[in-house]
Amino acid sequence: MNLGFIGFGEAAFELASGLNEQGLQNKIAYDPLLNVPEYSELIQNRAKASNVKMVDSTEEVFKEVDAVIVAVPADKALGVSQQLMANVNSNSIYIDVSAANPNIKKQIAFNICTSGGKFVDAAMMGPLPVYKHKVPILASGDGTDIFIEMMSVYGMNIEKVSEIPGEATAAKLIRSIYMKGIVGLYIELLEAAHHFNVENLVIDSLSETINGRTFEETMNRLVTGTALHATRRSIELGGTIDMLESADIDSSMSKAAKAKIEKLALLNLKEKYHGEKPEHWLQVIEAFKVTN
């Protein structure tokens, strides 16, 4: 197995390091920053540590490998695919691990398939420094089955989503609504709790409420319960916002939540369900679709 990398930043380095430990010896990479003085030493040290041969052109990478992992910033991914089209051939497996959005992934797939190659939209779903090559990966695109066959023998944890490029990344980006958004909520909550000197009370209370149930149970309970009591809960959040602003604490996350719950209130689900809360969160989401 010969594996190539286009871009040798942290993501490529962590993958290469883990694969090296699993015995994958033939690894080659190209990174334009290799010749930039402030990055050169770092890239060379990473390449040495992970047993990766650095080369001077993308052409050299594609000539020597069975598959190429393209690990470039999301805003560069489409342009890089256009530049690499001349290197792609019928034997090329092009694996894009960027966080470019699903529409961009579809455009990249078109470029690669037009050049005769197979495309994989690979969404890494965990921290690479922790998992390295075993990071959970969701994959979609016409090259996914080949990617799994090639790399599973080295312990890579790849789950096929579909043949449609962009669907794997869609799952990653939607997950980020929670994983990134919850950090904003935590910061706003903790800033307020600390200001009012009630952090232990608040954290203990939330722990008791949340820890006894699974994530899915808690999510379903909160969404369906709020569907029934949206008006009251939006008013309560208004009180929270007033309190935060009186203490000169940023309330942007609470304001956003209040706006969303107010839209939920306009659906009149309490009346639709005759005062009983919906059984499942999907009923609430379907109700939103009707109004869009």
Rank of each mutant, 00 (worst) to 15 (best):
M1Q: 02
G4L: 02
I6Y: 03
F8V: 11
E10F: 08
E10P: 07
A12D: 02
G18F: 02
G18D: 01
N20Q: 11
N20W: 05
E21T: 07
Q22H: 06
L24D: 04
N26Q: 11
I28A: 02
I28S: 03
D31V: 11
L34W: 02
L34R: 10
N35K: 13
E38M: 13
S40C: 08
S40G: 11
K48L: 14
S50K: 05
N51I: 09
N51G: 10
K53T: 12
D56Y: 06
S57N: 04
T58W: 01
E59D: 14
E60C: 09
V61H: 02
V61T: 03
F62K: 00
K63F: 12
E64M: 12
V65W: 07
D66I: 00
V68W: 01
V70D: 03
A71Q: 05
A74S: 12
A77K: 12
G79D: 15
V80D: 09
S81P: 15
Q82H: 13
Q83G: 15
M85V: 14
V88Y: 00
N89K: 14
S92N: 10
S92V: 15
Y94I: 14
S98D: 05
A99T: 15
A100H: 04
I104D: 00
A109S: 14
F110L: 15
C113I: 13
S115R: 13
S115T: 13
F119G: 04
V120P: 01
M124R: 03
P127K: 09
P129I: 11
P129Y: 06
P129M: 07
K132D: 05
K132V: 11
K132N: 07
K134Q: 06
K134Y: 06
V135D: 01
P136I: 09
P136M: 04
I137Q: 05
I137D: 03
I146V: 15
M151E: 02
M151D: 00
V153C: 04
K160C: 04
V161E: 00
E163L: 12
P165Q: 00
P165V: 04
A168H: 06
A168T: 00
T169M: 03
A171F: 14
K172E: 04
S176P: 06
S176I: 11
G181W: 03
G181H: 04
I182T: 10
V183E: 13
L189G: 14
A192K: 10
L201C: 09
S207M: 13
E208R: 10
G212N: 14
T214Y: 08
T214W: 09
F215A: 08
F215C: 08
E216Q: 12
E216S: 14
E216C: 06
E217G: 12
T218N: 12
N220W: 09
N220L: 07
R221Y: 11
R221D: 14
L222I: 15
V223S: 05
G225Q: 07
S234Y: 09
E236L: 10
G238L: 10
M243F: 13
L244N: 05
S246P: 05
I249W: 03
D250S: 12
S251Q: 02
S252E: 10
S254E: 01
A257V: 13
K258G: 10
K258W: 01
A259Q: 11
K260E: 12
K263G: 03
K263T: 06
A265W: 01
N268K: 00
K270M: 05
Y273I: 07
P278V: 01
P278K: 08
E279A: 13
E279C: 13
H280A: 10
W281H: 15
A287T: 08
A287S: 15
V290C: 03
T291F: 10
